[in-house]
Design a protein around this nucleic acid. Structure first.
Length: 559
RNA sequence: GGCCCCGUGGUGCAACGGUUAGCACAUCGGCCCUUCAAGCCGGUAAUACGGGUUCGAUUCCCGUCGGGGCUACCA
């Protein structure tokens, strides 16, 4: 492909503007010349190689859609490791991959990176898949398990060994292990000299050692460059890169013979799966040069790399268990809607370019672009997440909401089958009445419990506040009788009965309204009283008032 | 410690060398009112600091400070 296609200023194809990526001085200098060359001869890849650029295609560009039409579409992957649940950072990475794939009409692949025998928990895979399904992130291929693809990694290592791009290392793992990252004390960090240039690099391979590790032989004396689709051009001198391990020795704590490390596994699979764009967390950015070297050594063209900024906790450190709920499933269990969660997540580190915040999934797909991804770490703000949930709870078509609320009620043991059948209309009406006051699905089974069962308690603060007046027992007894005698159970009839009683007694209607609300639903907060009476029905209203009377008398007598 | 990245209100984003620095969440006040939400109206609140470059810098460059990442036979 032609390098000029990647140049922001040459947006004559209608490329999305590249907002935050200054060109490197070198490319700034060469741009006019380069543009001409590209236009005339399309010699860009040669130019690139001459200048040490990695010839990768930058497909966040309308051109890639043309490529797609030719059957050379975008292929991305999400590659979690089953060492824990699906956390919000991973979910966001998955979401960005998915959005990019859908936007480009490409392929989204799921791969499980389970090459660490010590830390893997196979039973966690299902939880990760569940989390992705809940978020609606459907994958087109996979899940593939690296543990089932071991021969491929060994073969790749063999190939590298045979061409001298890798060597056998006979050192015990402990020699380089531990170090600073392991000990929290923080002492002696300054002593660590980390560039591993093992003596085995130049030694004759020993036949005595049956269980060597395989290390990559980093080509010294040059630099490795790549152009991150988010962070822009970067380079690192190879001398600063260690001879990282490709294949672990049998002595490794993490497993047995010939297990690949992340670097090898990811690269071999990404080549194998023809991944065109690697979209992953920014914590991988310093791995990227190593992997580019691996691609080259394996005679493959590196994909586009797009690193997305990290998600931080409120204290601006990396989000972790310390910060409370970090797993996607905990948000599901708390009563968040996947649509809301997805919308919120999408805005963590990405923006459409304008001030729009509410995105339907189709909008998200249509508007997503790697050039809109930020380089700044983002703090996870639960308050805003709740706001999004509230918005969706209120704006989603009722029919789409009902199943989620049914699930919530089932979970709480409150669900009655007739609400899905003969009383479906009542159920829909009740949900519609309740939802303006809800923020979470769980509000339906907690706060609004009295709408779905007679088994509920009277809120203490509500009793204290609204059942205090000593006239209440008498007034509510009379109200109950009047309501019971009502020929038509309508909003206006109830309204009239209550207000007339209040007027006759010379009290504010609000006194009766508030006291009645607590008697009916046990809460100080509920939908407008007469709407509430309507969905509850006459029997229940009268019954609940009678039931509450003794408690009201007790409270008002107490003063 | 070394290498690297990132700094716009408390939080998420916008401003692509020229705006009274915009939007949203949160927060505070008002309206509405049958409680609480919602809604509407309004307020407080930011370019980390210091140098350059420029007629002009949130924007480009350098330094300082702050935060983060990496520094594993983890991923």
């Amino acid at each position: 492909m032609c390098y000029c296609e990647r140049l922001p200023k040459m947006a004559r194809f209608g490329a999305p503007r590249d907002r935050k990526r200054p060109l490197a001085p070198r490319s700034r200098l060469f741009r006019p010349w380069l543009a001409r060359v590209c236009r005339w001869h399309r010699l860009s890849s040669i130019f690139l190689r001459l200048n040490g650029w990695t010839p990768v295609s930058y497909s966040d560009h309308p051109r890639s859609q043309a490529a797609d039409a030719r059957g050379e579409g975008v292929r991305v992957r999400f590659a979690p490791s089953p060492t824990g649940f699906l956390h919000v950072g991973g979910a966001r990475t998955a979401l960005f991959n998915w959005l990019f794939a859908r936007n480009q009409r490409g392929t989204f692949i799921l791969r499980i990176e389970d090459t660490d025998l010590e830390r893997n928990r196979p039973e966690l895979v299902e939880g990760i898949l569940d989390g992705l399904r809940w978020l609606g992130l459907d994958w087109d291929e996979g899940p593939f398990y690296q543990s089932q693809r071991l021969p491929g990694y060994a073969a790749a290592a063999e190939k590298l060994l045979s061409k001298g791009a890798a060597y056998l290392c006979h050192c015990p793992p402990e020699k380089y292990a531990g170090g600073d990252s392991a000990d929290e004390a923080g002492t002696a960090k300054s002593e660590i000299k980390r560039i591993v240039r093992c003596s085995c690099r130049d030694a004759k391979p020993s036949t005595a050692d049956q269980n060597p590790a395989v290390r990559f032989r980093v080509p010294l004396g040059t630099t490795t460059r790549f152009d991150d689709a988010v962070f822009g051009p970067r380079e690192i001198h190879n001398d600063e890169m260690e001879d990282f391990v490709l294949l672990r020795s049998a002595r490794s704590a993490s497993g047995g013979t010939a297990l690949p490390t992340y670097q090898l596994g990811a690269v071999v699979d990404d080549i194998d799966m023809r991944i065109t764009h690697v979209i992953r967390g920014a914590d991988h950015i310093s791995n990227t040069p190593k992997q580019i070297l691996l691609y080259r050594a394996l005679d493959a063209v590196p994909p586009v790399f797009a690193h997305v900024p990290l998600i931080l906790g409120p204290d601006r450190t990396r989000l972790s268990k310390r910060h409370g709920a970090t797993s996607v499933s905990s948000y599901r269990d708390e009563g968040f809607l996947p649509e809301a969660f997805r919308n919120f997540l999408a805005l963590l580190g990405w923006s459409s370019g304008d001030d729009t915040e509410m995105f339907r999934t189709s909008d998200l797909i249509q508007r997503f672009s790697l050039s809109g991804v930020s380089r700044t770490n983002a703090v996870f703000d639960r308050a805003k997440l709740e706001w999004f949930n509230q918005q969706y709870l209120q704006k989603l078509p009722l029919e789409e909401l009902l199943p989620a609320i049914q699930a919530e009620l089932e979970k709480a043991g409150l669900w009655r089958p007739e609400w899905g059948a003969s009383q479906r209309e009542w159920f829909a009406r009740t949900v519609d009445l309740l939802r303006p006051r809800t923020r979470l699905l769980s509000d339906f089974s907690h706060w609004a419990r009295a709408f779905f069962t007679d088994d509920f308690d009277y809120d203490l603060a509500a009793r204290e506040k609204f059942w205090k007046d000593e006239r209440l027992p008498d007034l509510l007894t009379r109200l109950t009788d009047e309501l019971a005698a009502l020929p038509d159970w309508t909003h206006d009839a109830c309204d009239r009965a209550l207000r007339q009683l209040a007027e006759k007694a010379g009290v504010k209607a609000a006194l009766l309204i508030n006291a009645t609300r607590v008697a009916l639903v046990g809460q100080p907060v509920a939908p407008p009283l007469f709407d509430t009476m309507l969905v509850l029905g006459k029997e229940r209203v009268v019954g609940r008032l009678r039931r509450a009377l003794p408690a009201i008398s007790a409270r008002s007598a107490a003063g």
